[in-house]
């Protein structure tokens, strides 16, 4: 029993120390990214390559996630609609939830799993095989050459993907509305249009912007700090997706409370 208690206390302390170290490391990396961007001095070709890679890799999974998210939210609101008979509110409830909160969070989590985790694994493998040191020896700054292109492409692509995702989420909602709730999908679309959700959608896109930045900085940080061989890479991927998930939920809270 005492062993478990000591374990818990010890781990608690370790978690706090680890959190401080990670936050410090992330801040330093973020600063170096900004320094490299203003005035712009980073690898242009690599940036274009990353845009394609990130976009192509994640578009399918984002579309599928968005379709299902819209449908799930419609089903959830369907319960109260059944009781009250207020069919006109389905579009409003689903639209608000999907565009401002649930959509950005779920798309962000999937994006982190697909692109962020992959990025950590890729950079981690480069570190383990000394490729990053080889860059340094050639006088190339890993931040300018590797990190900034990923930072830019993840931010831009997550915002664009969330735009696409919003559309598909509403489509998924409309399909579920017709197929599962048995409410004509025109009622759903009309309700969405009547609810004036531009403000919610804008907030969702601002969140995507912030999440994209957070995911890229976190995944690059853990990738560049891999220690040890195959095992180290696996551990880094794990730490990276966990930290990215925490930053998504915290940033989501901050953006919403500041916005409204």
């Amino acid at each position: 029993m005492t062993r478990v208690l000591l374990d818990v206390l010890g781990t608690f302390g370790q978690v706090i120390l680890q959190a401080c170290r990670v936050v410090g490391g992330l801040t330093v990396l973020q600063t170096r990214i900004l320094l490299a961007m203003f005035p712009p001095d980073f690898d242009y070709d690599e940036t274009v390559r990353q845009f394609f890679k990130v976009g192509v890799k994640s578009v399918a999974v984002v579309v599928a996630t968005a379709l299902l998210t819209g449908a799930i939210m419609v089903i959830q609101s369907g319960n109260s609609v059944q009781e009250t008979g207020a069919t006109g509110l389905v579009g409003w409830a689903t639209g608000t939830a999907v565009l401002s909160e649930v959509g950005p969070i779920l798309i962000g989590l999937m994006f982190s799993g697909r692109v962020g985790a992959n990025n950590t694994a890729e950079l981690g493998a480069m570190v383990v095989t000394d490729q990053v040191n080889a860059l340094r020896v050639l006088g190339m700054d890993p931040v300018r050459y590797l990190v900034v292109p990923r930072f830019l492409s993840m931010i831009v692509m997550l915002v664009l993907l969330t735009c696409i995702g919003d559309l598909f989420a509403l489509t998924g909602g409309a399909i579920a509305c017709q197929a599962i709730l048995g409410i004509d999908q025109r009622v759903f679309w009309q309700s969405v249009l009547d609810s004036h959700l531009l403000d919610e959608m804008t907030m969702g896109l601002v969140k995507a912007f912030v999440f994209g930045g957070a995911i890229s900085v976190v995944s690059c940080y853990f990738g560049l700090n891999v220690k040890g061989g195959a095992e180290g890479v696996g551990r880094a991927v794990n730490d990276s997706v966990v930290t990215a998930a925490i930053s998504i939920f915290v940033a989501n809270f901050l953006v919403t409370t500041i916005w409204i």
């Binding site: 799993g113 985790a117 890479v233």
Partner: peptide, 12 residues
């Protein structure tokens, strides 16, 4: 190690 990284990301 590349294979371990790939299988981990695929699992996520």
């Amino acid at each position: 190690s590349e294979g371990v990284g790939q299988s981990t990301t695929r699992a996520v």
